[in-house]
Every structure is written in C-alpha cells, then in structure tokens.
Write a protein that binds this DNA or RNA. Structure first.
Lengths: 250, 250
DNA sequence: GTCAGAATTCATCATGCGTTGAATTCTACG
DNA sequence: CGTAGAATTCAACGCATGATGAATTCTGAC
C-alpha cells in the first residue's frame, strides 16, 4: 500500500528560458550574487521522478555509511537536490531511512522454494536463497543499509531481526514441527547474521568472493542441523539428523 | 607510543548512581557562583585516577552507542570531568576510542586451553572460551564497543577482524595442518561474529540468556566441522569428521 | 620555600547538522 | 485564461559537536 509519489507525470519538455528576474526580497546582508542562470528558485521543469532519485541516493549512502554516518545534505547532494526537498518529501531523517529501506521484495516469495525438496538439504536451499537475495543489485543496498545501522539504531535493529529471524525462520522451524522452534530459529539467524556481516559488511576473503553454489554445501549443513538435528546429543556425536540413533524428522 | 599515565587499568566498574546530577551547564548569563568549592578552576585535589575514570566512561558509552553515537561531552559528563580534559589526555576522539578499546587480555592466553584435548571437540572449547571471554564483565564493554562500531568505523572494523579472524583462528587452522586454512578460519569467524551479534548486540532470545555450557554443544560442532570436516563432501552427507559414511535419513 | 610542571576548568571557535518557513516557478485542471 | 496546488529552492535558525588556548590550582622536587 505504498501511496507512491504525488502524481508522477512523464511529460518533460518545456525548455523555458530563464526569464525570472531574481529580485532579492529583503536586503540580504551580503549574499554572493551568483547570477548564473542555473541557480534560480522554484520548480524546475521536467526533472522527472525526483522523489525516486532521492530514495536511491539515500539507499546508496545509508548502505555505505549507516544511519549515523549519513547526512541529509549528502543525500540531497547526490540526488542533485536541495536538502529542504528531502524534508519536504520525508519529514525527518528517520522517516527517510524507513522509506529508503522498505523491503523491495516479499520475503514470503522465496519461502516455497525453500520448503520444497528433501528436508536434509533445507540448509543448502536457505543459503542459496539468502545469498541470492543479497546478490541482487536492487536488494543489496537495502540490506547493507539495515545491517550497517542495526548495531546502533533501534529501528534498523528491529528491521534486521524481522528479516533474519522473526519472520521466515520462525515460520520454517514451526512448519517443520520440531520443538524448540525459537531456539533453532535463533541459531540459524546467528549463522545468517554472521555470514552477512563477514561476506557483505566486512568483506572477508575468501568467502566474500565465493559463489552461492560454493557456499551452500559449506554452510548449508550447519543450518540443516540447527533446524532438524538432534541438538541434545552429547558432545562428540555430530548431532546430525540421520547420524542420531532416533530419527526426529517428520 | 602509549605513554600510559597512572598505571593500572583494572577498575572493573565502581558504578556511581546512574546519571549523576552533575549538570553544571547552565547557559544563564549570571551563573550563581554556587559558593561551594565545586565550581572553581584548576587542579582538584586528590581526585585519584581520573584518566582511568575517563577510560572507563568511554568504554561504557562506546559499548552502548558505538563510535558515532558517542560524544566526548557524554564521556566527560559520565566521568564528571570537563570535556577539555578528555582532549588533554587523548587528543582526538579516534585516539580515545583506540585507547578505550585496547584489548584488556592477551588473546593468546586462551589458545592452549583450546588446542588441548581431543580434536573432535575443539569447536566446543572455542565456544566455551569465546562466550567465557564475552561474559567477563571487564571484557564485555570492550568487545561490545568494537562490535557496535565495526559496521561503520574502519578502525573498529580492523580491530574486530583482528580479534575474531586474523589472529587466533588463522593460527588454529594453520596449527592443525588442514588445507584451506583461510577459508575455514573465515567460516569459523562468520559463526562467531553471528553469535556475538545475536547474543550480545541484538540480544536475541533464547540464546542471549543461555549459559556457555549450553551453547557449546549446540554451536561447537559447527566450528569443529568448519575446522576439520570434509567440506568437499556432497550436500546431504554431514561432512563431519567423526560421522561414518552413512547415507542420509530415508 | 620556591618553582616547574601536571591537572583541571573556562570560555570560545568553527563547523556541520537536522530542520523550518517562506518565496518562487511550474503544471494541471476548470 | 486563471488559478490552486505541487515542486523546488533560498536563507536561516538553533543547537550540538569536536577541538583549542589560555587561565588557574595543586603537587612534588629541590
């Protein structure tokens, strides 16, 4: 229910030569006159989807520097727009953050692909979906921005938790009918958070450069065990589903 | 290098009542001189280890709000000291951060306890040591401060990587003579980062409240497999070092 | 007892921030 | 055409921040 911009119209032509005499209203103390034609006030013609440009700019800078490190002036500058316009559209910096980080895809969309298939490879599918999501160029800035801000900003922290733990994973764990769903989901979340931080935020090599299909067999089994394994097994036994004496699956 | 002033840096807490009412910042043009001796200039007698108090204050606030969210005035206020004194001792905010986050223990101290014992439980021992470290009250603020700042500040990011991956884990992986030491160390690092973020930064339940000896059998096997397992195994097999080549559950 | 130097505070500075209000120009609708 | 309203900018406010430099007071060595 995103009310989208105020009537975005595509039509853009209107050369409109600068005719407005810049009559300085009050006797300004000493403003450098700067009589270039580009610096005039008022609506600029045909600039297209400005609001969207501001959002893109905000996403990029939030992703790079996190909430605290981002200034509205920088966002405006990158969008080639006056800072006041950012406030005009979004009100406050927090609201700009929320608007820019609104999740671009429906998380539940990927759930069926994860649930389908043999249970003992569910971890691999989660990793594939997770990495595939982060690697989509229109999604990455959003997730990076949230991740970079989550250690400081409570709003971002709530988003982070929502995307990584509360939402899909609780559902998955509950769906599979294992007990301790919350604990298992949190364990999965911890490995996913760590993967995201190591690969995308800290960019640790070599896992920052590996492909999704290389990572899945490495980390997938961890998630599978967290979700389905016999976690009560004594140390020394692997605790893997199938290697435990009793098969808890299904 | 580090001239280190009044010696020891122990002093776990000392904890005055929260939010000491030491306002003393009235911008009123005619400040009532408050004839008590509190408001005078110059050296104050017998105040003891002031530099240490500033460091403790900085650690606490960095831990709570990260580098960006911490102001020198807040640090000074909590230490009941003038902000200029903080600069007098540490020069710049970055140097204060480095001084406050200087690691309070020798990481190599815990290495023997990890290396000793049967290899197939090395992961459990790493978790026990890791959680034990974080749970020590004089260490936690340091690690929290670094973790909270690492997503934004490059200096903190380097510290974080140093503590979690570069230093001990490379050593461990190399020591054990497995190939792909860097990759294995990074995998271990990813799980440790995730555990730290989930348990200490995001405080996700229930793993935020579990004891070290409860967490070790849950997460330890993951690390053991990352360090020693047959990671080239096809998905479906557990890839565990001790687990026999038995097929998946059917 | 003197005096150098350390410890501590005060008073500011310059900057950058988020935010606001009003002015101006363009567009769409009647 | 006229006009209401949206889009955009200008100018500035108020405040918090990191940082400085000088002033003051205490301490310790001689």
């Amino acid at each position: 229910m995103n009310g989208e911009g105020p009537g975005e119209a595509g039509a853009a032509e209107a050369d409109a030569e600068p005719n407005g005499a810049v009559g300085a209203r009050p006797a300004s103390p000493s403003p450098p006159p700067d009589v270039s034609a580009a610096g005039r006030r008022g609506r600029r013609p045909g600039s297209g989807d400005t609001r969207g440009r501001v959002l893109d700019s905000a996403r990029a800078i939030f992703a790079e520097r996190g909430f605290d490190g981002t200034t509205i002036r920088d966002v405006a500058g990158r969008a080639e727009v006056d800072p006041a316009l950012v406030h005009h559209y979004f009100g406050t910096k927090q609201r700009l953050f929320v608007a820019a980080m609104e999740f671009p895809i429906e998380i539940r969309t990927v759930m069926p692909a994860i649930a389908a298939g043999s249970p003992d490879q569910i971890g691999d599918r989660i990793i594939a979906a997770f990495v595939g999501l982060w690697d989509r160029p229109e999604v990455r800035p959003t997730l990076l921005g949230v991740a970079r801000s989550a250690t400081t900003d409570p709003v971002a922290a709530a988003m982070f938790r929502g995307v990584l733990v509360d939402g899909p994973l609780q559902a998955i764990a509950g769906l599979l009918g294992t007990p301790d769903a919350a604990m298992r989901a949190t364990l999965v979340g911890s490995q996913l958070i760590g993967l995201a931080m190591a690969r995308y935020v800290a960019e640790l090599e070599p896992i920052a450069s590996m492909r999704a299909d290389e990572l899945a067999p490495l980390i997938g089994p961890t998630l599978t065990r967290y979700l389905l394994g016999d976690l009560g097994a004594q140390p020394g036994s692997s605790g893997f589903p199938g290697s435990a004496p009793n098969g808890p699956v299904r």
